[in-house]
Design a protein around this nucleic acid. Structure first.
Lengths: 338, 338
DNA sequence: TGCACTCGTGATAACGTTTTCTGCATGACC
DNA sequence: GGTCATGCAGAAAACGTTATCACGAGTGCA
């Protein structure tokens, strides 16, 4: 052990030299191919003595595969994507792939940039969650490498897609309120540039329409999926003094914002106003009152996406399950008092 | 454009050929080195015609640098780490580095595995957040490559560390309750294998001790940083029928769990029981009541960690700022009614 | 005993870049 | 007009692996 030697990283060559064999043999031992037993043991000895680990970069270079999967989401840190990512992470870990997460922050240029990075780094597959990448671009990518899209609907067959029926889910949520006797139902929208938000608004309208309720334009409140937006919107709406008895927020975070706003205005949930959210974030079961919401199986979607990517990588046709959006009944809704 | 040709990825060689120059020249153009203007324009033309992008893998191979930074956290999807990650992401993006996130899920073997992956992939730096990696190992790593540790205290000087004074923060939180006149204060602990949780328990004890209050063992409730654990613990404690007027939970998620449990038992926050959390998650401002808590500047810590890593990579001595843990007064605490 | 095989080994060629080295012009200076 | 820099382009080496190829020694069978 020469002191002061700056750790010039060791190579398979050093191992070969010390074990008195060729690099080929060392490579074979590392990769579990047949080698004469006595050679194998001596190589293994050196391997562990030197604590040698082959360079993944060099490996990728020659093998043409990197064991990495690019994962593109809007925002790693937002609660919903966090769930999804957890799912992706858990299955990719088992398949020996390394996820490379990128947030696009709702910017089309960042999206394209992230894709470029993935391609440059020669990822073995890409998982795209939501976003605004044009379908043509997605198709182009899918033709080039394994690509799975989650959380977007209406894509052509060329692209394996995992879809949730946002419109149906929102319809279910709104219908729940209607079934409880509510008719004056407010909807707080998500960021309308996102497909999900649009779908949920449609679902709300569907349910209202089916029930023969005319939706007043004032009932449609703009929001951006964050607590604050719903808080402000709700506050503003209450000040209009229009009658209303229920609120359907396009996600749980906004439902929470609305919940506080209602409280500030002296309205009790669910006694005065029923409130439904969307997503079923882990914390929604612990809000006051616990939130009735539509459960999006985000983690399962993540798992399925990763599985599908794995299928694609191994040449199998990807399994693309359907997911059910369930209404989770808790305590933020109640029958309209007559 | 030959139809049906499977897209054998193009190389710098193809570009050189089509532009009628050598590969060296193409490389020079790509890297912005001096080249005869007319050659440069023709090469650039071909470059954009072919939409050529150099392989990051090959580049890493020869340059010995990958432009990636390994980031090891306990759990990507937990709310607190999400904040931190957001900070890391935002500055690394600006420096042109790509974060490689790994969750260790509180497992020492997964931690070590993640480190190996980082090393194998030849990351340019590593950021470790919390965790259980032995100090000797950290020192060893720090000697080998730029390493920044966040969220751990008491490390030797060899390792650049970003620390938050958890003990002090918890002392502040508890003192706040004491200043409001509370004396029978319950503490819901975090996962006690984690340094943070231990620090916060110490801080709680410090404050109680300074105020001359003897801590009853029953007041120390076990928890694991998740809502459910606190919910159950709180429920159980109330059933003991011991007098108490305030609760300090080791994080906001648990404060929320406790909040619901108190509600279930007919105790109002803050009228009957004052409640303080820790972290100041975005949603804590929207709970009912809005939560008084200790603000951990997670995002800023993330930013600082990334900056420090960048400093290290560029040979500068890392800037390791101190962070202040502020008490955020909201509505879950009030003076003890006499 | 000889021939065709199999098996395991080492030498060597990839993989796609950047970097170093070499060589050829061109221009400057005495 | 000859020598010496200088500038820039191409050739070749290098990065650390794996894959291909060639070879020699056994082995089985006729």
């Amino acid at each position: 052990m020469t002191a002061g030697s700056l750790a010039k990283s060791l190579t398979i060559r050093d191992v070969a030299h010390r074990a008195g064999v060729s690099v080929s043999t060392v490579s074979r031992v590392i990769n579990g191919k047949k080698v004469r037993p006595e050679l194998e043991t001596s190589v293994r000895q050196v391997l562990s003595d030197l604590n040698f680990r082959p360079s993944a970069v060099a490996r990728s270079m020659v093998r043409g595969t990197t064991q990495t999967v690019g994962v593109l989401v809007e925002d790693i840190s937002s609660a919903y994507y966090a769930e999804l990512i957890k799912g992706i992470e858990s299955v990719l870990e088992r398949t020996g792939h390394h996820p490379l997460f990128k947030s696009s922050h709702w910017s089309t240029v960042l999206e394209e940039e992230a894709l470029k990075v993935f391609l440059d780094h020669n990822v073995d597959a890409i998982i795209v969650v939501g976003g605004f990448i044009p379908e043509t671009r997605l198709r182009e990518l899918a033709a080039r490498l394994p690509l799975v899209v989650a959380g977007r609907g209406g894509l052509s067959l060329g692209v394996p897609t995992l879809t949730l029926d946002q419109r149906g889910g929102a319809e279910r949520a709104t219908r729940h309120l209607i079934e409880l006797g509510h008719r004056e139902i407010v909807h707080i929208c998500g960021r309308m540039t996102q497909e999900d938000a649009v779908g949920r608004l449609h679902g709300y309208r569907d349910a209202m329409h089916s029930a023969g309720i005319e939706v007043r334009p004032e009932w449609i409140l703009p929001g951006d999926f964050l607590e604050t937006s719903a808080y402000r919107a709700m506050l503003g709406f209450v000040e209009l003094n229009l009658p209303f008895t229920a609120v359907f927020a396009a996600n749980d975070q906004m439902a929470l914002g609305a919940n506080l706003a209602l409280h500030r205005k002296g309205l009790r949930v669910p006694d005065d106003v029923s409130l439904v959210g969307y997503d079923d974030l882990p914390m929604s079961a612990y809000s006051l009152p616990p939130l009735t919401t539509i459960r999006q199986p985000a983690q399962q979607v993540g798992e399925a996406a990763a599985h599908a990517a794995h299928d694609l990588m191994t040449g199998k046709t990807p399994h693309l399950p359907e997911f059910e959006l369930r209404l989770v009944l808790r305590e933020s809704t109640r029958p309209l008092r007559r």
